[in-house]
């Protein structure tokens, strides 16, 4: 991988001397609960990093706060485990400064769609080249079972003992409603092949790729996805050559919808549909304006800057 970043003395990894195995991306031992869907997502991400041979030190995982936000600790890349809801501004700052780095963002549903909702909307609009994963278990788990925006209506939690009163927020509809959003997909951690294919498509997208990953919490929200896990007929695959194609799961998920990811109106209809849970790429438009590209400025050396400052001071000279 060649990285160029203006004046930065970016090191170019020796030509394929190193080959990174999946194990080369393993960080601390994951401390998620047994049966947590995050384990499967971590495995798929490590597989992706190895498949793409991403240099560990050129890769940064940024997260917020929540169970899923422990993600960076369990990888051997650079990681930024920040504050609740604010992973996207940090990732934006990193990418604006260091376009040579591969930046991934991992958020939970409370993180992304509640406390960080403003950043989520605006990050989609900035369309900075980031791979953004929403690990959506439909519950606040780290704080022990409170209703999140994506918790189903009627679901009993510690803050909604009579069941959640509002219909849940649909992250796909929100994302597809944001001007200049360029990549929106949905997948599920219990279908590793689909998850991996979707992550790979997201990684290859130039712009902000937003992937909602349906993720089971075995402790607090098992019921949220139970029906979908047990009954594949509830799931419909979006298939298209420009989307993800996962032949090996087509035997399980017989319901398939041909969907061209360039069709935004169709993507919005699919996002709003209640008949099935749709997995696949809903929308993709690599031609959307990218904030990190349009804001890039020619770098200056210290000497050049000094000369320019002198000229600038002339404007203010008495």
């Amino acid at each position: 991988m060649t990285a160029t970043c203006g004046l930065l003395p970016v090191l170019e990894p020796a030509e394929h001397e190193a080959h990174y195995e999946i194990t080369d991306y393993e960080g601390a031992r994951a401390r998620w609960c047994p049966g947590c869907g995050d384990h499967s997502i971590l495995a798929s991400v490590q597989k992706l990093l190895s498949a793409e041979q991403l240099t560990p030190e050129q890769t940064v995982f940024v997260s917020g706060i929540g169970c899923s936000s422990r993600f960076p600790h369990y990888l051997r890349t650079y990681g930024f485990h920040g504050i609740h809801g604010r992973a996207l501004p940090v990732a934006t700052g990193i990418k604006l400064t260091r376009p040579d780095l591969q930046v991934f963002v991992v958020m939970g549903d409370g993180d992304c769609t509640s406390i960080g909702a403003a950043h989520w909307v605006h990050a989609l609009r900035y369309n900075v080249n980031l791979t953004v994963l929403l690990l959506d278990n439909g519950i606040y788990a780290l704080t022990k079972k409170q209703t999140s925006p994506t918790t189903p209506q009627g679901f009993v939690s510690n803050t909604s003992p009579e069941g959640g009163v509002l219909p849940s927020l649909n992250p796909l509809s929100v994302a597809l409603g944001v001007t200049n959003a360029s990549f929106v997909a949905q997948t599920a951690e219990w279908s590793p092949a689909h998850l991996y294919a979707t992550l790979r498509a997201a990684y290859h997208h130039r712009g902000l790729s937003f992937v909602r990953i349906l993720q089971r919490c075995p402790i607090y929200s098992t019921a949220v996805y139970q029906a979908a896990v047990q009954d594949p007929a509830r799931i419909a695959l979006l298939v298209h050559d420009d989307g993800v194609v996962v032949p090996e799961i087509e035997k399980i998920y017989k319901s398939q919808v041909a969907h061209d990811p360039h069709d935004l109106a169709a993507a919005r209809r699919i996002a709003d549909a209640t008949d099935h849970i749709h997995l696949g790429v809903l929308y993709r438009d690599p031609s959307r304006l990218r904030y990190d590209e349009i804001r890039r400025v020619p770098p200056r050396t210290a000497e050049e800057r000094l000369t320019l400052i002198d000229a600038e001071l002339d404007r203010y000279a008495v």
Binding site: L88, T92, V121, R295
Partner: peptide
């Protein structure tokens, strides 16, 4: 560059991200 963020919090976050990046 001047980055006009979506809010005060994000402005701090973007600056911190940039600083973290070197």
């Amino acid at each position: 560059i001047v980055h006009q963020a979506e809010d005060e919090i994000a402005a701090a976050g973007v600056a911190i991200g940039s600083s973290y990046a070197g």
